[in-house]
Simulated scan of single mutants.
Amino acid sequence: MSISFEVFAKESRRLLESQMTEYAKAVLCPAVLRDAMLYSLEAGGKRIRPLLLFATLHAFQKKREIGLAAASALEMIHTYSLIHDDLPCMDDDELRRGKPTNHKVFGEAMAVLAGDGLLTYAFQVLAENRHPEVTEAMNLRLVLELAKAAGPEGMVAGQVADMEAEGKQLTLSQLEYIHQNKTGRLLEFSVLAGAVLAGASLAQTEELMEFARNLGLAFQIRDDILDVEGNEEEIGKRVGSDVANEKSTYTTLFSMEEAKQILHETTERAKNAVRSLQLQDEYLLQICELVAKRTH
């Protein structure tokens, strides 16, 4: 019998954070660089991407430990992107998860280098993974897919499109491109990595990616809603930044009521995709609820 989702999520975070700290402390680098990397890695957060990876493994009745290296690498990539997003040349944010942003503590130059360090170390962690149930072919596939998801064909492309969109009225397809790349691609990798490590079939993987695409879009729609309705103290960063930066969002292209309806429909599509596989999917379905109803 499976443990509750709350216990699964708590244990997953503890396992991940312990492993990431171990990885970071093993890096042979100047102490200040390690401190800057650890500062953001240990800042907490939902850990939704690693949780998705672990939940996908669980759906195939595989142990979380198989995905620890991939989950750590994924969270390193996500953390680097947050460090760089917060810089004065990007979003110029002073708070992240309720704490001063990396550049406010370590300075802009060290924040850039901490992000660079996490980005490149993530691929080292993946390539050096020697778990007995993870083959070299799996490692190579994960390195390739993470590079595509995080790089100029994925997250970086979304960030560029997001910057260029400031002050412009976007179409829905343009907005979806930003969301699918800037946020969605790493969420999709979370599920894909779980599928690869679990030995999923091509048909199963395709259905899981349909689930992941809809979940990624739901995540960003909820983000747009929280930027208007969210509690700054609970979110851990300023609200209203999208309005201040003149960004098109689901709440500017649609009414708040319409945005919430689209969120509901998108979440249901994600649930239906994963249900069709008839796997041990309770944690994946719970993550859908978590994403749709999150308050931070």
Rank of each mutant, 00 (worst) to 15 (best):
V125W: 05
A127K: 12
M138Y: 11
E145T: 07
L95K: 14
M110L: 15
K99N: 13
L118R: 09
A111K: 12
A111G: 05
K99S: 12
V112H: 10
R97M: 11
A109Y: 09
L126V: 10
D86W: 04
E128W: 12
V134R: 05
T135Q: 03
A147S: 06
E133I: 09
K148H: 06
G107K: 06
G151E: 01
C89N: 07
H131D: 00
E136P: 03
T135C: 09
K99G: 08
F106I: 00
A122K: 01
A114H: 14
Y121A: 10
E145D: 03
M138C: 10
K148A: 07
H84A: 05
E136R: 15
K104P: 02
G117W: 09
A109K: 11
A109V: 05
Q124A: 14
Y121W: 13
P132S: 15
V112E: 06
H131Y: 02
R97G: 10
F106D: 00
A114M: 14
E128R: 15
D93E: 06
A122C: 06
L118W: 10
L146V: 00
N129E: 15
K148Y: 05
K148P: 00
P100A: 05
M110D: 07
L142S: 00
L140H: 01
E136A: 15
G115M: 09
T135H: 04
K148S: 04
N129F: 07
L144A: 04
G107R: 05
F106T: 01
D116M: 14
D116H: 09
G115R: 06
R141T: 10
